[in-house]
Design a protein around this nucleic acid. Structure first.
Lengths: 200, 200
DNA sequence: GTCGGTGATGTCAGTGACTGCCATCAACCT
DNA sequence: AGGTTGATGGCAGTCACTGACATCACCGAC
Protein backbone atom coordinates (compact mmCIF):
# COMPACT_ATOMS: atom_id res chain seq x y z
CA UNK A 1 0.00 0.00 0.00
CA UNK A 2 1.45 3.33 -1.04
CA UNK A 3 0.98 6.00 1.58
CA UNK A 4 -1.12 8.85 0.34
CA UNK A 5 0.93 12.00 0.61
CA UNK A 6 -1.09 14.92 1.86
CA UNK A 7 1.21 17.87 2.13
CA UNK A 8 1.10 21.43 0.99
CA UNK A 9 3.15 22.24 -2.09
CA UNK A 10 4.18 25.48 -3.63
CA UNK A 11 1.52 26.70 -5.99
CA UNK A 12 -0.98 24.10 -4.88
CA UNK A 13 -4.32 24.84 -3.37
CA UNK A 14 -5.20 24.03 0.19
CA UNK A 15 -6.28 20.50 -0.55
CA UNK A 16 -5.21 17.85 -2.98
CA UNK A 17 -7.37 18.31 -6.05
CA UNK A 18 -10.05 15.96 -7.33
CA UNK A 19 -11.29 14.66 -4.02
CA UNK A 20 -14.29 13.02 -5.66
CA UNK A 21 -12.13 11.19 -8.19
CA UNK A 22 -9.76 9.98 -5.46
CA UNK A 23 -12.68 8.68 -3.43
CA UNK A 24 -14.12 6.94 -6.47
CA UNK A 25 -10.87 5.23 -7.37
CA UNK A 26 -10.04 4.27 -3.79
CA UNK A 27 -13.50 2.83 -3.27
CA UNK A 28 -13.28 0.66 -6.36
CA UNK A 29 -9.89 -0.64 -5.23
CA UNK A 30 -11.05 -1.50 -1.73
CA UNK A 31 -14.34 -3.00 -2.86
CA UNK A 32 -12.34 -5.18 -5.23
CA UNK A 33 -9.76 -6.21 -2.66
CA UNK A 34 -11.88 -6.89 0.42
CA UNK A 35 -15.39 -6.85 -0.93
CA UNK A 36 -18.04 -4.17 -0.59
CA UNK A 37 -19.41 -5.08 2.82
CA UNK A 38 -15.99 -5.62 4.36
CA UNK A 39 -14.98 -2.09 3.43
CA UNK A 40 -15.99 0.79 5.69
CA UNK A 41 -16.52 4.29 4.43
CA UNK A 42 -13.95 5.50 6.94
CA UNK A 43 -11.34 3.27 5.31
CA UNK A 44 -12.08 4.64 1.87
CA UNK A 45 -11.98 8.23 3.03
CA UNK A 46 -8.81 7.88 5.07
CA UNK A 47 -6.95 6.11 2.30
CA UNK A 48 -7.97 8.97 0.03
CA UNK A 49 -6.69 11.43 2.62
CA UNK A 50 -10.14 12.65 3.58
CA UNK A 51 -12.66 12.20 6.34
CA UNK A 52 -15.75 10.02 6.37
CA UNK A 53 -17.90 13.15 6.48
CA UNK A 54 -16.38 14.41 3.26
CA UNK A 55 -17.17 11.11 1.53
CA UNK A 56 -20.83 11.68 2.27
CA UNK A 57 -20.65 15.21 0.96
CA UNK A 58 -19.58 13.87 -2.42
CA UNK A 59 -21.74 10.74 -2.57
CA UNK A 60 -25.18 10.18 -1.18
CA UNK A 61 -24.26 6.75 0.15
CA UNK A 62 -21.65 4.03 0.11
CA UNK A 63 -22.99 2.53 -3.11
CA UNK A 64 -23.38 5.68 -5.10
CA UNK A 65 -19.63 6.10 -5.45
CA UNK A 66 -19.69 3.40 -8.15
CA UNK A 67 -22.56 4.92 -10.11
CA UNK A 68 -21.71 8.53 -10.38
CA UNK A 69 -21.13 8.33 -14.13
CA UNK A 70 -24.67 7.19 -14.88
CA UNK A 71 -25.96 10.71 -15.33
CA UNK A 72 -23.93 11.45 -18.45
CA UNK A 73 -24.94 8.14 -20.00
CA UNK A 74 -28.57 9.04 -19.44
CA UNK A 75 -28.09 12.44 -21.06
CA UNK A 76 -26.49 10.77 -24.04
CA UNK A 77 -29.40 8.37 -24.42
CA UNK A 78 -31.99 11.11 -24.16
CA UNK A 79 -30.31 13.54 -26.53
CA UNK A 80 -29.72 10.81 -29.10
CA UNK A 81 -33.34 9.72 -29.02
CA UNK A 82 -34.41 13.34 -29.31
CA UNK A 83 -32.07 13.94 -32.23
CA UNK A 84 -33.19 10.94 -34.29
CA UNK A 85 -34.93 11.77 -37.60
CA UNK A 86 -38.66 12.19 -37.28
CA UNK A 87 -39.15 9.43 -39.78
CA UNK A 88 -37.48 6.94 -37.45
CA UNK A 89 -39.78 4.50 -35.71
CA UNK A 90 -39.46 4.62 -31.89
CA UNK A 91 -37.44 1.43 -31.80
CA UNK A 92 -35.03 2.87 -34.37
CA UNK A 93 -34.50 5.99 -32.32
CA UNK A 94 -33.68 3.74 -29.38
CA UNK A 95 -31.37 1.68 -31.58
CA UNK A 96 -29.51 4.84 -32.48
CA UNK A 97 -29.18 5.68 -28.79
CA UNK A 98 -27.78 2.21 -28.12
CA UNK A 99 -25.11 2.84 -30.73
CA UNK A 100 -24.29 6.21 -29.24
CA UNK A 101 -24.07 4.66 -25.79
CA UNK A 102 -21.81 1.93 -27.12
CA UNK A 103 -19.37 4.60 -28.24
CA UNK A 104 -19.04 5.60 -24.59
CA UNK A 105 -17.41 2.24 -23.91
CA UNK A 106 -14.45 1.92 -26.25
CA UNK A 107 -12.29 -1.22 -26.00
CA UNK A 108 -9.82 0.56 -23.70
CA UNK A 109 -12.49 0.95 -21.08
CA UNK A 110 -13.42 -2.70 -21.07
CA UNK A 111 -10.94 -3.77 -18.42
CA UNK A 112 -12.07 -1.06 -16.05
CA UNK A 113 -15.69 -1.97 -16.75
CA UNK A 114 -14.90 -5.60 -15.98
CA UNK A 115 -13.38 -4.79 -12.59
CA UNK A 116 -16.32 -2.59 -11.75
CA UNK A 117 -18.86 -5.16 -12.87
CA UNK A 118 -17.14 -7.90 -10.87
CA UNK A 119 -17.62 -5.82 -7.73
CA UNK A 120 -21.25 -5.18 -8.56
CA UNK A 121 -22.23 -8.77 -9.31
CA UNK A 122 -20.66 -9.84 -6.03
CA UNK A 123 -23.05 -7.72 -3.96
CA UNK A 124 -26.86 -7.61 -4.09
CA UNK A 125 -27.02 -4.08 -2.75
CA UNK A 126 -24.89 -2.84 -5.61
CA UNK A 127 -27.02 -4.76 -8.10
CA UNK A 128 -30.07 -3.01 -6.69
CA UNK A 129 -28.45 0.33 -7.27
CA UNK A 130 -27.51 -0.61 -10.81
CA UNK A 131 -31.05 -1.73 -11.53
CA UNK A 132 -32.58 1.50 -10.34
CA UNK A 133 -30.15 3.47 -12.46
CA UNK A 134 -31.25 1.43 -15.47
CA UNK A 135 -34.89 1.97 -14.52
CA UNK A 136 -34.27 5.69 -14.35
CA UNK A 137 -32.64 5.45 -17.75
CA UNK A 138 -35.68 3.64 -19.13
CA UNK A 139 -37.99 6.28 -17.71
CA UNK A 140 -35.93 9.04 -19.29
CA UNK A 141 -35.96 7.30 -22.66
CA UNK A 142 -39.71 6.83 -22.42
CA UNK A 143 -40.03 10.53 -21.73
CA UNK A 144 -37.92 11.38 -24.76
CA UNK A 145 -40.08 9.13 -26.89
CA UNK A 146 -43.22 10.80 -25.61
CA UNK A 147 -41.73 14.11 -26.64
CA UNK A 148 -41.52 12.63 -30.13
CA UNK A 149 -45.24 11.99 -29.99
CA UNK A 150 -45.12 8.32 -29.08
CA UNK A 151 -48.12 7.35 -26.96
CA UNK A 152 -48.23 5.14 -23.89
CA UNK A 153 -47.77 2.29 -23.38
CA UNK A 154 -45.69 2.16 -26.55
CA UNK A 155 -43.15 4.66 -25.24
CA UNK A 156 -42.48 2.78 -22.00
CA UNK A 157 -42.44 -0.60 -23.69
CA UNK A 158 -40.00 0.57 -26.33
CA UNK A 159 -37.77 2.08 -23.67
CA UNK A 160 -37.90 -1.06 -21.55
CA UNK A 161 -37.08 -3.18 -24.57
CA UNK A 162 -34.13 -0.92 -25.29
CA UNK A 163 -32.86 -1.26 -21.73
CA UNK A 164 -33.23 -5.03 -21.92
CA UNK A 165 -31.04 -5.01 -25.02
CA UNK A 166 -28.56 -2.72 -23.28
CA UNK A 167 -28.32 -4.99 -20.24
CA UNK A 168 -27.87 -8.14 -22.28
CA UNK A 169 -25.51 -6.51 -24.72
CA UNK A 170 -23.36 -4.94 -22.05
CA UNK A 171 -23.10 -8.17 -20.10
CA UNK A 172 -22.11 -10.08 -23.20
CA UNK A 173 -19.51 -7.47 -24.04
CA UNK A 174 -18.04 -7.70 -20.54
CA UNK A 175 -17.93 -11.50 -20.55
CA UNK A 176 -17.04 -12.05 -24.17
CA UNK A 177 -13.75 -13.85 -24.78
CA UNK A 178 -13.31 -12.29 -28.20
CA UNK A 179 -13.14 -8.54 -28.22
CA UNK A 180 -16.25 -7.61 -30.15
CA UNK A 181 -17.15 -3.95 -30.42
CA UNK A 182 -19.97 -3.09 -28.04
CA UNK A 183 -21.91 -1.49 -30.88
CA UNK A 184 -21.92 -4.76 -32.78
CA UNK A 185 -23.05 -6.68 -29.72
CA UNK A 186 -25.86 -4.19 -29.22
CA UNK A 187 -26.97 -4.56 -32.83
CA UNK A 188 -27.07 -8.33 -32.72
CA UNK A 189 -28.82 -8.31 -29.36
CA UNK A 190 -31.52 -6.05 -30.73
CA UNK A 191 -31.89 -8.31 -33.74
CA UNK A 192 -32.25 -11.25 -31.41
CA UNK A 193 -34.92 -9.49 -29.36
CA UNK A 194 -36.84 -8.76 -32.54
CA UNK A 195 -36.57 -12.37 -33.63
CA UNK A 196 -37.72 -13.63 -30.27
CA UNK A 197 -40.76 -11.38 -30.01
CA UNK A 198 -41.79 -11.71 -33.66
CA UNK A 199 -45.09 -13.33 -34.51
CA UNK A 200 -44.73 -16.55 -36.40
CA UNK B 1 -55.02 2.63 17.54
CA UNK B 2 -56.27 -0.63 18.99
CA UNK B 3 -54.01 -1.98 21.69
CA UNK B 4 -52.54 -5.31 20.78
CA UNK B 5 -53.52 -7.81 23.43
CA UNK B 6 -50.75 -10.17 24.31
CA UNK B 7 -52.03 -12.50 26.98
CA UNK B 8 -52.05 -16.19 27.50
CA UNK B 9 -55.32 -17.94 26.73
CA UNK B 10 -56.54 -21.41 27.48
CA UNK B 11 -55.57 -23.71 24.71
CA UNK B 12 -53.35 -21.15 23.05
CA UNK B 13 -49.67 -21.54 22.59
CA UNK B 14 -47.17 -19.39 24.36
CA UNK B 15 -47.26 -16.63 21.77
CA UNK B 16 -49.86 -15.09 19.55
CA UNK B 17 -49.77 -17.02 16.31
CA UNK B 18 -48.64 -15.77 12.91
CA UNK B 19 -45.95 -13.39 14.08
CA UNK B 20 -44.69 -12.95 10.53
CA UNK B 21 -48.10 -12.04 9.21
CA UNK B 22 -48.68 -9.53 11.99
CA UNK B 23 -45.34 -7.90 11.28
CA UNK B 24 -46.13 -7.75 7.59
CA UNK B 25 -49.52 -6.13 8.10
CA UNK B 26 -48.29 -3.71 10.75
CA UNK B 27 -45.36 -2.63 8.59
CA UNK B 28 -47.60 -1.89 5.62
CA UNK B 29 -49.90 0.17 7.82
CA UNK B 30 -47.10 2.22 9.33
CA UNK B 31 -45.26 2.71 6.05
CA UNK B 32 -48.50 3.96 4.60
CA UNK B 33 -49.30 6.28 7.51
CA UNK B 34 -45.92 7.85 8.24
CA UNK B 35 -43.82 6.84 5.29
CA UNK B 36 -41.12 4.21 5.10
CA UNK B 37 -38.20 6.21 6.42
CA UNK B 38 -40.17 7.78 9.24
CA UNK B 39 -41.06 4.34 10.56
CA UNK B 40 -38.57 2.53 12.77
CA UNK B 41 -38.37 -1.23 12.98
CA UNK B 42 -38.87 -0.97 16.73
CA UNK B 43 -42.21 0.73 16.15
CA UNK B 44 -43.38 -2.00 13.79
CA UNK B 45 -42.30 -4.77 16.12
CA UNK B 46 -43.79 -3.22 19.25
CA UNK B 47 -47.12 -2.49 17.60
CA UNK B 48 -47.17 -6.14 16.55
CA UNK B 49 -46.41 -7.16 20.14
CA UNK B 50 -42.88 -8.33 19.35
CA UNK B 51 -39.34 -7.10 19.72
CA UNK B 52 -37.10 -5.53 17.11
CA UNK B 53 -34.87 -8.57 17.31
CA UNK B 54 -37.75 -10.83 16.32
CA UNK B 55 -38.55 -8.66 13.30
CA UNK B 56 -35.07 -9.36 11.97
CA UNK B 57 -35.49 -13.07 12.56
CA UNK B 58 -38.45 -13.07 10.19
CA UNK B 59 -37.21 -10.58 7.60
CA UNK B 60 -33.70 -9.96 6.40
CA UNK B 61 -34.17 -6.20 6.51
CA UNK B 62 -36.69 -3.41 6.86
CA UNK B 63 -37.61 -3.52 3.18
CA UNK B 64 -37.99 -7.24 2.79
CA UNK B 65 -41.19 -7.27 4.84
CA UNK B 66 -43.03 -5.92 1.79
CA UNK B 67 -41.61 -8.47 -0.63
CA UNK B 68 -41.98 -11.74 1.11
CA UNK B 69 -44.60 -13.01 -1.35
CA UNK B 70 -42.29 -12.71 -4.34
CA UNK B 71 -41.07 -16.27 -3.97
CA UNK B 72 -44.37 -17.92 -4.79
CA UNK B 73 -44.88 -15.67 -7.79
CA UNK B 74 -41.50 -16.75 -9.09
CA UNK B 75 -42.36 -20.41 -8.61
CA UNK B 76 -45.57 -19.89 -10.52
CA UNK B 77 -43.74 -18.25 -13.42
CA UNK B 78 -41.14 -20.96 -13.59
CA UNK B 79 -43.52 -23.89 -13.37
CA UNK B 80 -45.83 -22.39 -15.97
CA UNK B 81 -42.97 -21.84 -18.40
CA UNK B 82 -41.79 -25.38 -17.76
CA UNK B 83 -45.28 -26.80 -18.29
CA UNK B 84 -45.95 -25.07 -21.60
CA UNK B 85 -46.28 -27.37 -24.62
CA UNK B 86 -43.02 -28.13 -26.36
CA UNK B 87 -44.41 -26.70 -29.54
CA UNK B 88 -44.78 -23.28 -27.91
CA UNK B 89 -42.27 -20.68 -28.96
CA UNK B 90 -40.33 -19.21 -26.00
CA UNK B 91 -42.36 -16.02 -26.06
CA UNK B 92 -45.57 -18.04 -25.96
CA UNK B 93 -44.42 -19.97 -22.92
CA UNK B 94 -43.72 -16.63 -21.26
CA UNK B 95 -47.11 -15.34 -22.36
CA UNK B 96 -48.72 -18.33 -20.66
CA UNK B 97 -46.78 -17.54 -17.50
CA UNK B 98 -48.00 -13.95 -17.63
CA UNK B 99 -51.57 -15.21 -17.72
CA UNK B 100 -50.93 -17.55 -14.82
CA UNK B 101 -49.36 -14.72 -12.85
CA UNK B 102 -52.32 -12.49 -13.61
CA UNK B 103 -54.57 -15.04 -11.96
CA UNK B 104 -52.63 -14.43 -8.77
CA UNK B 105 -54.01 -10.90 -8.70
CA UNK B 106 -57.79 -11.17 -8.82
CA UNK B 107 -59.81 -7.93 -8.67
CA UNK B 108 -60.28 -8.30 -4.91
CA UNK B 109 -56.55 -7.94 -4.39
CA UNK B 110 -56.29 -4.77 -6.38
CA UNK B 111 -56.95 -2.41 -3.50
CA UNK B 112 -54.30 -4.06 -1.35
CA UNK B 113 -51.90 -3.99 -4.28
CA UNK B 114 -52.59 -0.30 -4.73
CA UNK B 115 -51.79 0.52 -1.13
CA UNK B 116 -48.63 -1.51 -1.30
CA UNK B 117 -47.55 0.04 -4.58
CA UNK B 118 -48.17 3.54 -3.28
CA UNK B 119 -45.73 2.87 -0.46
CA UNK B 120 -43.15 1.47 -2.85
CA UNK B 121 -43.27 4.29 -5.41
CA UNK B 122 -42.83 6.79 -2.58
CA UNK B 123 -39.44 5.38 -1.61
CA UNK B 124 -36.40 4.75 -3.82
CA UNK B 125 -35.03 2.06 -1.54
CA UNK B 126 -38.21 0.08 -1.88
CA UNK B 127 -38.15 0.53 -5.64
CA UNK B 128 -34.65 -0.88 -5.66
CA UNK B 129 -35.84 -3.93 -3.81
CA UNK B 130 -38.75 -4.39 -6.19
CA UNK B 131 -36.44 -4.13 -9.17
CA UNK B 132 -34.07 -6.79 -7.89
CA UNK B 133 -37.01 -9.09 -7.24
CA UNK B 134 -38.09 -8.61 -10.84
CA UNK B 135 -34.53 -9.20 -12.01
CA UNK B 136 -34.43 -12.41 -10.03
CA UNK B 137 -37.71 -13.36 -11.64
CA UNK B 138 -36.29 -12.66 -15.08
CA UNK B 139 -33.24 -14.79 -14.33
CA UNK B 140 -35.45 -17.66 -13.17
CA UNK B 141 -37.57 -17.45 -16.31
CA UNK B 142 -34.46 -17.42 -18.46
CA UNK B 143 -33.31 -20.54 -16.66
CA UNK B 144 -36.63 -22.24 -17.28
CA UNK B 145 -36.39 -21.36 -20.95
CA UNK B 146 -32.88 -22.76 -21.16
CA UNK B 147 -34.23 -25.99 -19.70
CA UNK B 148 -36.57 -26.04 -22.67
CA UNK B 149 -33.57 -25.89 -24.98
CA UNK B 150 -33.64 -22.18 -25.71
CA UNK B 151 -30.15 -20.86 -26.30
CA UNK B 152 -28.60 -17.63 -25.05
CA UNK B 153 -29.07 -14.77 -25.57
CA UNK B 154 -32.59 -15.65 -26.71
CA UNK B 155 -33.55 -17.05 -23.31
CA UNK B 156 -32.50 -13.97 -21.37
CA UNK B 157 -33.97 -11.57 -23.92
CA UNK B 158 -37.29 -13.36 -23.95
CA UNK B 159 -37.38 -13.37 -20.17
CA UNK B 160 -36.50 -9.68 -19.99
CA UNK B 161 -39.16 -8.87 -22.54
CA UNK B 162 -41.65 -10.81 -20.46
CA UNK B 163 -40.72 -8.88 -17.33
CA UNK B 164 -41.02 -5.60 -19.20
CA UNK B 165 -44.55 -6.59 -20.16
CA UNK B 166 -45.26 -7.63 -16.59
CA UNK B 167 -44.04 -4.32 -15.18
CA UNK B 168 -45.99 -2.22 -17.64
CA UNK B 169 -49.08 -4.38 -17.41
CA UNK B 170 -49.09 -4.44 -13.62
CA UNK B 171 -48.63 -0.70 -13.38
CA UNK B 172 -51.45 -0.08 -15.81
CA UNK B 173 -53.68 -2.45 -13.89
CA UNK B 174 -52.93 -0.62 -10.64
CA UNK B 175 -53.52 2.82 -12.11
CA UNK B 176 -56.38 1.98 -14.41
CA UNK B 177 -59.63 3.79 -13.69
CA UNK B 178 -61.74 1.07 -15.28
CA UNK B 179 -61.37 -2.33 -13.68
CA UNK B 180 -59.83 -4.35 -16.46
CA UNK B 181 -58.75 -7.90 -15.70
CA UNK B 182 -54.99 -8.09 -15.24
CA UNK B 183 -54.81 -10.93 -17.75
CA UNK B 184 -56.33 -8.76 -20.44
CA UNK B 185 -53.95 -5.92 -19.66
CA UNK B 186 -51.05 -8.33 -19.91
CA UNK B 187 -52.24 -9.61 -23.27
CA UNK B 188 -52.60 -6.18 -24.77
CA UNK B 189 -49.26 -5.06 -23.34
CA UNK B 190 -47.56 -8.02 -24.94
CA UNK B 191 -49.26 -7.24 -28.24
CA UNK B 192 -48.05 -3.68 -27.96
CA UNK B 193 -44.48 -4.81 -27.29
CA UNK B 194 -44.63 -7.00 -30.36
CA UNK B 195 -45.94 -4.15 -32.47
CA UNK B 196 -43.28 -1.81 -31.21
CA UNK B 197 -40.35 -4.15 -31.85
CA UNK B 198 -41.64 -5.46 -35.18
CA UNK B 199 -39.67 -4.78 -38.32
CA UNK B 200 -41.46 -2.59 -40.80
C1' DG C 1 -2.73 45.45 1.56
C1' DT C 2 -6.45 44.27 4.43
C1' DC C 3 -10.94 42.48 5.32
C1' DG C 4 -15.03 39.89 4.90
C1' DG C 5 -17.33 36.33 2.28
C1' DT C 6 -17.12 31.65 0.28
C1' DG C 7 -16.24 26.84 -0.29
C1' DA C 8 -14.25 22.58 0.89
C1' DT C 9 -13.05 20.35 4.64
C1' DG C 10 -12.72 18.49 9.70
C1' DT C 11 -14.81 17.19 14.25
C1' DC C 12 -18.29 15.51 17.10
C1' DA C 13 -22.49 13.78 18.76
C1' DG C 14 -26.47 11.39 17.63
C1' DT C 15 -29.98 8.02 15.42
C1' DG C 16 -31.29 3.87 13.58
C1' DA C 17 -30.47 -0.52 10.89
C1' DC C 18 -28.64 -4.79 11.61
C1' DT C 19 -25.80 -8.74 14.08
C1' DG C 20 -23.95 -11.97 17.58
C1' DC C 21 -24.53 -13.94 21.85
C1' DC C 22 -26.84 -15.65 25.60
C1' DA C 23 -31.06 -16.29 28.47
C1' DT C 24 -35.88 -17.76 28.87
C1' DC C 25 -39.68 -20.79 28.76
C1' DA C 26 -43.56 -23.46 26.94
C1' DA C 27 -44.24 -27.50 24.11
C1' DC C 28 -42.86 -31.85 22.90
C1' DC C 29 -40.48 -36.29 23.15
C1' DT C 30 -38.66 -40.23 25.73
C1' DA D 1 -39.11 -36.31 35.42
C1' DG D 2 -35.75 -34.85 32.40
C1' DG D 3 -33.72 -33.42 28.11
C1' DT D 4 -34.44 -31.09 23.65
C1' DT D 5 -36.33 -27.82 20.57
C1' DG D 6 -38.12 -23.51 18.79
C1' DA D 7 -39.66 -18.91 19.11
C1' DT D 8 -38.75 -15.21 21.54
C1' DG D 9 -36.47 -11.17 24.53
C1' DG D 10 -32.49 -8.49 26.04
C1' DC D 11 -28.18 -6.42 25.38
C1' DA D 12 -24.02 -4.80 23.57
C1' DG D 13 -21.69 -3.58 19.56
C1' DT D 14 -20.63 -1.96 14.59
C1' DC D 15 -21.45 0.95 10.93
C1' DA D 16 -24.07 3.88 7.61
C1' DC D 17 -25.64 8.28 7.52
C1' DT D 18 -27.01 13.26 9.33
C1' DG D 19 -26.97 17.85 11.54
C1' DA D 20 -24.47 21.47 13.68
C1' DC D 21 -20.52 23.99 14.21
C1' DA D 22 -15.52 25.17 13.55
C1' DT D 23 -11.52 25.95 10.51
C1' DC D 24 -8.88 28.06 7.04
C1' DA D 25 -7.00 29.04 2.43
C1' DC D 26 -8.65 31.62 -1.34
C1' DC D 27 -10.59 35.66 -3.65
C1' DG D 28 -12.76 39.78 -4.62
C1' DA D 29 -14.08 44.53 -2.82
C1' DC D 30 -12.43 48.40 -0.93
Amino acid sequence: MSATVITYHLGMSRWEPNARGRLEQTALELYGERGFEQTTVTEIANRAGLSERTFFRHFADKREVLFWGAGSLQELFVSTVAAAPESDAPIDAVAAALQAAAAFFPPERREHAQRRQAVIVANPGLQERELIKLASLAAAIAGALRSRGVAEPAATLTAEAGIAVFKVGFERWIDDANDAELGDVMSSSLDELRAVTARR
